[in-house]
C-alpha cells in the first residue's frame, strides 16, 4: 500500500516538473536558448494571483495566463530577438540578466517577505481510495498535465504552426529556406511557454499557498535538469525527463535512511551525473543535435 502511495506522490510531482521542463525544452528546441527567465514567468503568474486575490477565480486565472504570456512575448521581443544570431552562451547570459531584472523589479515592488495567498484551498483536501490518500490538487495536476501534453502533441502534429515549429526544431535554417517565418514560430513558442509557466504557477500557489520573488528559481533549475535528462531539443524528452526527476526525487525521499535524507538532492544529482555518463545526449536526443555532433 505504501509503495502505491509513494508512486502516486512521485507521479504527481513528476507531472509538475514535466510541465516546467516542457516550457524550457520548447524554447530550446526552436532557438537553442536555455531560458532561465522561465522561472520568472512562473513567478509573475504567481504574483498576478496574489494581486488579484479575492476576485472571481476565472478572472485570477485568465489574468495570470495573460500576464505570463505577455511577459514571455515581451522578453522574446526585447531581449532575445536581437540576439538571435548570437552564440548560445550569449543567449544564456542574456536570459540570466532578464531573470535577475524581473526578480529585482518584483523585489522592489513587493518586498522580500513571502506572502500568503488563498488560491483554490478546496484542492487541498484529499480523497481516500481504499486507504490511499490522493490530494485533489495532485489529481488535477496529473490530469491537466496529460491534457496539455495531448494538446501539444495534437498541435505539433495537426496545425500548420505546429508543423513549422517542428521543422524549426529539426533545422532552423532549412525551415526558413522553405518559407517558415522565424519571428512567428519563435513568438509562438514563447507564448506557449508563457502559458505553461502560468499553469505551473497555479500549481505552486495552490500547493504552497504563498508567493515570493524567488519562487521560480528552484523550479527552473529542476526543469533545466529534466530537459537535459530527457534530451535537449526533444520536446517529448523534456516531459519524460520531468517525470523521471520527480519520481527519482520522491523515491529517494521515501527510501533513503533518515540520516542521509537531508542530502537527498545530492543523491538525485549524483544519479543524473551517472546517467549522463551512460547517455550523454539524454533519453531522447533530437536528431538535429546528433547530426551536429
Amino acid at each position: 500500500m505504501i509503495v502505491l502511495q509513494n508512486l502516486i506522490d512521485a507521479v504527481s510531482l513528476g507531472a509538475v516538473y514535466a510541465l516546467a521542463a516542457l516550457g524550457i525544452g520548447l524554447i530550446f528546441s526552436v532557438m537553442r536558448l536555455i531560458n532561465f527567465a522561465h522561472g520568472e514567468l512562473i513567478m509573475v503568474g504567481g504574483f498576478t494571483l496574489y494581486t488579484l486575490a479575492g476576485q472571481p477565480l476565472l478572472v485570477m486565472i485568465l489574468a495570470a495566463l495573460l500576464t505570463s504570456t505577455v511577459l514571455a512575448l515581451g522578453m522574446e521581443r526585447v531581449a532575445f530577438r536581437t540576439l538571435r544570431k548570437a552564440s548560445p552562451a550569449t543567449l544564456l547570459i542574456s536570459s540570466f540578466a532578464v531573470s535577475y531584472l524581473i526578480q529585482h523589479i518584483v523585489l522592489l515592488a513587493f518586498g522580500s517577505r513571502a506572502m500568503g495567498v488563498a488560491f483554490l484551498p478546496e484542492l487541498g483536501t484529499a480523497i481516500d481510495l481504499g486507504g490511499l490518500r490522493i490530494p485533489l490538487l495532485q489529481l488535477v495536476t496529473i490530469a491537466v498535465t496529460l491534457v496539455l501534453m495531448a494538446g501539444l502533441v495534437a498541435f505539433f502534429r495537426l496545425s500548420e504552426t505546429g508543423l513549422q515549429m517542428r521543422a524549426a526544431a529539426e533545422d532552423f535554417t532549412m525551415a526558413r529556406l522553405v518559407g517558415v517565418k522565424a519571428n512567428r514560430v519563435i513568438a509562438f513558442a514563447f507564448a506557449i511557454s508563457g502559458v505553461l509557466a502560468s499553469i505551473v504557477s497555479f500549481y505552486l500557489v495552490a500547493q504552497t499557498g504563498s508567493v515570493s520573488y524567488k519562487m521560480g528559481v528552484s523550479m527552473v533549475l529542476i526543469a533545466f535538469v529534466s530537459s537535459v535528462i530527457g534530451g535537449m531539443g526533444s520536446i517529448a524528452g523534456a516531459a519524460l525527463g520531468g517525470f523521471l526527476v520527480g519520481i527519482v526525487s520522491v523515491s529517494l525521499q521515501a527510501y533513503l535512511p533518515v540520516d542521509l535524507r537531508p542530502y537527498r538532492d545530492a543523491f538525485v544529482f549524483l544519479l543524473f551525473v551517472l546517467f549522463l555518463f551512460w547517455r550523454p545526449d539524454g533519453l531522447l536526443a533530437s536528431r538535429a543535435d546528433r547530426d551536429r555532433v
Binding site: N6, A10, Q207, V217, S218, M219, D265
Partner: peptide
C-alpha cells in the same frame, strides 16, 4: 527542503 514544491512522501 524549504523550496521543495511538495512534502507528499514526508506526509505518507
Amino acid at each position: 527542503g524549504g523550496e521543495d514544491p511538495q512534502i507528499a512522501s514526508q506526509i505518507t
